[in-house]
Amino acid sequence: MHEFPVLEVAGLHIDVSAFIAITVSAIITFVLARLAVRKLSVDNPSKLQNFMEWVVEFVHSTIASTMPMKRVRPFLALGMTLIMFIFVSNLLGLPFGIVTEHHHTSSFVTQEMLDKHHGEVELAWWKSPTADLNVTGGLALIVFILVHFLGLKMNRKHYIKHYFQPFWFFFPLNLIETIAKPVTLALRLYANIFAGEVLIATILMLGVVGTPFMIVWQGFSIFVGAIQAFLFTILTMVYISQAAIHDEEEHAH
C-alpha cells in the first residue's frame, strides 16, 4: 500500500496529498460553478446554466421533501455546495494517480517508513479528498455543529425535549444516536471512496489484463461517487430538518 507524504512544519503534520486534493477539489468546484453562472439569463439560459438549474431543482426537491418549502432557502446553498464539492471530490482520484518511489530518507520519508517497506517507499500524491477520513470527518463535523446550532437556535424547546423522548431514560440512547449520525456520515463516505481507490490500486497491479475490470470499476466509481454525494447531502438535510423544523404534525401530539 502507498504511504501518503507528510510534511512537518512547525510541529504540524501536514498531509500534502490531502491538502492538494482538498484545494484542487474546491478550486474545480468553484470554477465549475462560476462557469455555469457566467452568462446568466432569464429567458435564454446556456446549457451549463440549464444543468446547474437542474442540480438546484434536484437539491431543492431533495430538501423540500424533508422540510417545509419556505424554510428551504438558507439550506439550498449549503446543499448545493455539499453535493458539488463531494461529487467533484469523489471523482478526483479516479482518472489518474501520482506515485513517486523513494529509496532514501527525505522530508517526506522517514527511516521508520523505509524499514517498514523494505527500503522502497511509494508516496501517493494524488487522491480523492473524500478518501481521507479527516476530510469526511471535517464535513461531518460541519453538519453536526450546524444541525445542533440550528436546533438550539430555531427550535430550542422541541430540540432539547427530543433527547428525553419517548421517556427520560431514553437519554443515553438518544445521545448515542446523535453521536452516531455524524460518525456514520463521515465513515460511509470515506469507506465508499477509499474502497474504490484501493480497488483501483489493486486492479492496477494486474497490468494490461486488468483493463476491462478497470473500465467497469471506473464507471461504477463514478456512479458510487454520485450516489454518495447525493446521500451525504440528503442525510444532512434530513438531520437539519429533524433538529430545526418543528412540523405542524408534531404540534398535534
Binding site: 501518503f4 507528510v6 504540524l12 503534520h13 501536514i14 498531509d15 490531502a18 491538502f19 482538498i22 484545494t23 474546491a26 468546484t29 468553484f30 446553498a77 449549503l78 455546495t81 464539492f85 479528498p129 481521507d132 477520513l133 479527516n134 476530510v135 470527518g137 471535517g138 464535513l139 463535523l141 460541519i142
Partner: peptide, 18 residues
C-alpha cells in the same frame, strides 16, 4: 494517517468554498 491538520483544513476549505 489521521491528522487533525487535514481535518481543520477540510473544514476551513469547505467553509471558504461555501
Amino acid at each position: 494517517n489521521l491528522h487533525w491538520e487535514s481535518f481543520v483544513y477540510a473544514i476551513v476549505a469547505f467553509l471558504i468554498l461555501y
